[in-house]
């Protein structure tokens, strides 16, 4: 795939989406007759065109919130040996107290 080919894919993709049900099928069939590879590529993308899917729907910053938190999971409320951890006092470069 190159940039020019991608432009052709874009054009057909949107032309198909702009049609209604029967028109879509007709357009894809006529495209397949002249350029089967192009029609196949567009069909594959249309199959993944799901406007309501959650994919990329929320901003990265939001879904990556856990990534921005400190890497060490909290031990509060857990048992370590014979000690029960009540609260976290602080954390720094070397570890968590």
């Amino acid at each position: 795939m190159n940039a020019a080919r991608w432009q052709a894919v874009n054009a057909l993709f949107h032309a198909v989406l702009d049609c209604d049900g029967a028109g879509r099928q007709a357009l894809l069939e006529s495209a397949a007759a002249s350029d089967p590879e192009l029609a196949k590529e567009v069909q594959s993308l249309l199959a993944r065109h799901q406007p309501t899917s959650s994919f990329l729907a929320a901003p990265a910053w939001n879904v990556a919130a856990s990534l921005m938190q400190d890497d060490e999971p909290s031990l509060v409320g857990k048992q370590v040996g014979s000690y029960h951890i009540l609260e976290e006092i602080g954390r720094g470069g070397m570890g968590v107290v």
Binding site: S54, F55, A58, N62, V63, S66
Partner: peptide, 21 residues
């Protein structure tokens, strides 16, 4: 791999790889 947990936001279960994106 680092996955983004969308459960944090939408209550869904889909997760995906930030570096792959």
């Amino acid at each position: 791999r680092v996955t983004l947990d969308e459960a944090l936001v939408a209550g869904g279960e889909q997760s995906f790889d930030l570096l792959a994106i």
